[in-house]
Simulated assay, not measured.
Amino acid sequence: MTVSIELVPGRCEGHAVCEAIAPEVFQVDDDGIVQLVPGGDHGAETALAAVRSCPVAALRATP
Protein backbone atom coordinates (compact mmCIF):
# COMPACT_ATOMS: atom_id res chain seq x y z
CA MET A 1 0.00 0.00 0.00
CA THR A 2 1.31 3.43 -0.93
CA VAL A 3 0.59 6.41 1.30
CA SER A 4 0.97 10.13 0.86
CA ILE A 5 3.42 11.72 3.26
CA GLU A 6 3.03 15.37 4.14
CA LEU A 7 5.64 17.59 5.78
CA VAL A 8 4.05 19.99 8.27
CA PRO A 9 5.56 23.43 7.50
CA GLY A 10 7.52 25.02 10.32
CA ARG A 11 7.32 22.04 12.65
CA CYS A 12 10.52 20.12 11.85
CA GLU A 13 13.32 20.68 14.38
CA GLY A 14 15.91 18.50 12.63
CA HIS A 15 16.00 15.60 15.09
CA ALA A 16 16.49 13.26 12.08
CA VAL A 17 14.65 10.34 13.70
CA CYS A 18 12.76 9.84 10.42
CA GLU A 19 15.99 9.78 8.43
CA ALA A 20 17.53 7.25 10.82
CA ILE A 21 14.51 4.95 10.47
CA ALA A 22 13.80 5.39 6.73
CA PRO A 23 16.72 7.02 4.89
CA GLU A 24 15.25 5.86 1.57
CA VAL A 25 12.31 8.23 2.19
CA PHE A 26 13.55 11.09 4.40
CA GLN A 27 16.62 13.29 4.38
CA VAL A 28 17.43 16.17 6.70
CA ASP A 29 18.99 18.99 4.70
CA ASP A 30 21.85 21.30 5.68
CA ASP A 31 19.37 23.67 7.33
CA GLY A 32 18.08 20.88 9.58
CA ILE A 33 14.72 20.52 7.80
CA VAL A 34 13.36 17.16 6.64
CA GLN A 35 12.81 16.63 2.92
CA LEU A 36 11.26 13.72 1.07
CA VAL A 37 13.72 11.78 -1.08
CA PRO A 38 12.40 11.87 -4.66
CA GLY A 39 11.16 8.43 -5.66
CA GLY A 40 11.37 7.12 -2.09
CA ASP A 41 9.20 4.14 -1.13
CA HIS A 42 6.36 5.85 0.75
CA GLY A 43 4.51 2.56 1.15
CA ALA A 44 7.21 0.90 3.18
CA GLU A 45 6.44 -0.03 6.78
CA THR A 46 9.62 1.76 7.78
CA ALA A 47 8.31 5.03 6.30
CA LEU A 48 5.15 4.75 8.38
CA ALA A 49 7.19 3.90 11.47
CA ALA A 50 9.28 7.03 10.85
CA VAL A 51 6.16 9.19 10.57
CA ARG A 52 4.86 7.81 13.88
CA SER A 53 8.27 8.29 15.55
CA CYS A 54 8.71 12.00 14.81
CA PRO A 55 9.11 13.68 18.23
CA VAL A 56 7.47 16.91 17.05
CA ALA A 57 4.80 15.44 14.72
CA ALA A 58 6.31 17.15 11.68
CA LEU A 59 5.10 14.37 9.36
CA ARG A 60 1.65 13.05 8.41
CA ALA A 61 0.72 9.97 6.40
CA THR A 62 -2.60 9.55 4.60
CA PRO A 63 -3.83 6.70 2.40
Rank of each mutant, 00 (worst) to 15 (best):
A44R: 11
E45Q: 11
G39F: 02
V28D: 09
Q27F: 06
A49R: 12
V37A: 07
T2G: 03
L7Y: 00
V8S: 05
Q35P: 03
Q27S: 08
P55A: 06
G40P: 04
Q35E: 06
V3Q: 05
L36K: 01
L48G: 13
R52K: 15
C18L: 13
V56Q: 05
V17T: 14
A16E: 02
E45K: 13
E6R: 09
P63M: 06
C12W: 01
L59V: 15
V34C: 05
V8Y: 01
P55G: 05
A58Y: 07
G40Y: 04
H15F: 14
V56P: 09
C18S: 13
L59F: 15
V25Q: 05
S4G: 03
L36H: 01
T46Y: 09
P9D: 07
L59T: 14
I5R: 07
D29C: 03
G39N: 09
E24F: 09
E24H: 11
E19D: 09
G40R: 01
A16H: 03
E24C: 07
P23D: 12
P23C: 13
I21H: 13
C54E: 08
E6D: 11
G43N: 14
F26D: 00
G39S: 10
T62M: 12
M1C: 06
M1N: 03
T2H: 08
G10Q: 11
D30S: 12
P55Q: 09
V28I: 13
V34F: 00
V17L: 06
G43S: 13
R11P: 08
I5Q: 10
V56T: 15
S53C: 14
V17N: 03
V28A: 08
E45I: 09
A47P: 12
V8I: 06
A44F: 06
G10D: 12
P23T: 10
E13A: 11
C54T: 03
V34R: 03
E6K: 10
E6H: 10
V37D: 08
D41H: 14
D30L: 06
A50K: 02
T46G: 06
D41Y: 10
V3G: 00
L7I: 03
P63L: 14
V3R: 04
A49Q: 14
P55K: 08
L7G: 00
R11N: 06
G39W: 03
F26H: 07
D29F: 02
F26L: 05
V37H: 05
R11H: 10
H15W: 15
S4L: 01
E45L: 12
V17P: 01
D30V: 02
G32Y: 03
G14F: 01
V51Q: 02
H42C: 00
C12N: 02
E24D: 15
G40L: 00
A57F: 06
R11T: 15
S4Y: 00
A61R: 04
V37K: 05
A16G: 04
D31R: 01
A44Q: 12
D41N: 15
P9L: 05
Q35S: 04
E24K: 08
R60C: 11
R11A: 14
L7M: 02
L48T: 11
C54M: 08
L7P: 01
G43R: 10
